[in-house]
Simulated scan of single mutants.
Amino acid sequence: MLDPTIASVRLAVRTALRPFEGSGTTVLVALSGGPDSLALAAALAFEAPKAGVEAVSITVDHGLQEHSARVAARAAEQAREAGIADARVARVEVTGNGGPEASARDARYRAIREVALETGAGAVVLGHTLDDQAETVLLGLARGSGAGSLQGMSPHRIDERGLAWIRPLLGLRREATHAFCAASGLEPWSDPHNSDERFARVRVRNTVFPVLESELGPGIAEALARTAEQLREDNEAFAEMIDETIEDIVEHAEAGIAVSCAALAANPPALRGRIIRYVVSSEFGVALSRTQTLEVARLATHWKGQGPIDLPGCQATRRAGRVVFSAR
């Protein structure tokens, strides 16, 4: 009889592959060698032939730990043993700009994108679990970074190149991937960074969650994951509203873009703030903080002769009944 944990992981991968069935497309799995990605890679190797897709794996060697090259080579070997013939290793250089976690993540995703382009992949599958989602939401809540952060990681998104980024395991707990590896006879790599208390995510995982579950009862991770899902739905609805509104209230201005003050003021605060952030992000490629967004909104809603507001990469000025964003 098939082990239930093996069945649950395979089912999650099978569901993720349905849009690609019979297409012959390449599906790239990001494989670190840890239990989550190893379970995902093994399940993909099993399901890919039945779905009519080709599985390729990419293991990124960040070079940050002793024997990292050996760990990466072993992960690729395990992928081949599972049935993924094209198992690649990419060595990257982590610069340290923006902190070690962010730098390593940026380098890793660059390498994954490059291999996706080389192989003509239509999708990349990532091994994040429900526990990872809950940790992401809790960290976003602690930073006070708003609904955009609290919606967590998307289970499926399409990037600007048309590449699908899929997280099939977001509905499964981390214990399921560990059990999958044990039942399959797989020996995952244990990343020492996962027990390094210097990292906020590790402290959340090892200290904060046990306290929350002890004091509030079980089910905290599932509740946070549900919150993320609900906020993603809200965000999608807001995005549709912005798309419907933006063409009527935005116009090009000299060296920038302008938004009608009357239209901004007529919208509810939540939509008003999103329009402002959307305009600035689209035109200048920068993100505004909540404080900056509110100050810009005041140019439309509480005009008392304020002067220009300096923002990252641009300036906001009220002029002739419009808020004009221009490059600085």
Rank of each mutant, 00 (worst) to 15 (best):
L2C: 02
A7G: 05
R10G: 02
R14P: 01
F20K: 06
E21M: 12
S23A: 05
V27R: 06
V29Y: 00
G33E: 11
A43Q: 02
A48C: 12
P49M: 05
P49R: 00
T59D: 04
G63N: 08
H67M: 14
A72M: 09
A72D: 10
R88H: 14
T95N: 07
G96K: 10
S103R: 09
D106E: 14
E114L: 06
A116Q: 12
A116I: 09
L126W: 02
L130V: 03
T136L: 01
L139I: 14
A142W: 04
A147Q: 04
S149R: 14
Q151F: 03
H156C: 08
I158K: 06
D159C: 04
T177E: 01
C181R: 04
S184K: 10
E187M: 11
S190G: 14
D191V: 15
H193R: 15
P210G: 05
A225R: 05
E236R: 13
E240I: 02
E244I: 03
I246D: 09
D248H: 10
E254D: 15
A258M: 07
G285H: 01
R290N: 14
T293C: 02
L294I: 08
A297T: 00
R298K: 15
L299M: 12
H302L: 13
W303G: 08
G305M: 05
P308N: 05
D310F: 00
C314L: 05
C314V: 03
R328V: 14
